[in-house]
Amino acid sequence: MVKISEEMDNLLKDNGIKQEEIQEVIDNAESSGTKLKARDGDLAIAKGVSDNLTMYAVYSPSELVDAYAHKMSILGITGGELDDVANDDESEWECAKCGEIALERNVDMTYMGVTRPGPGLVCPKCDEYYVSAGVAKTLKTAESILEEKRA
């Protein structure tokens, strides 16, 4: 079990996430190896995907350092293929399972019947998709707009 500070507990509450849910996300990542680990340092990102929410835990071996979630579902790479791109796409993370550097690529996201691209962290071998905490904040704004406009 990782330690969850009072600050993190408040963050979880703000995001409507229970402590046991985020612990389960971490436990699953640790047992399956499906997670990103920092290329420099000991942080990891684990995710838990359900029908209408994707939760993320950023944690060190000893404690939870961030937690966030988004409602948009990630469908896959925008355009369908992982082609070469002209911009620098290597992220600061690598896939713990296969060791590949996670790429910063556009992924298609869908919510309330609308599908659009968003910036994801992609393992090029395992086809696993993640988003950063900052992008989750951006997605939250996007979700609010869609909820208002699609209502």
Binding site: M72, T78, G79, D83, V85, A86, N87, E104, R105, N106, M109, V114, R116, P117, G118, P119, T138, L139, T141, A142, I145, L146
Partner: peptide, 26 residues
Amino acid sequence: GPGVYYHLCGNHTDDYQMWRDAPMSP
């Protein structure tokens, strides 16, 4: 974000394809 507006003014015959993979938001 969340808005990103790529304004590619002028002649982009030779480079427009590379912007297909520019980072995008919803």
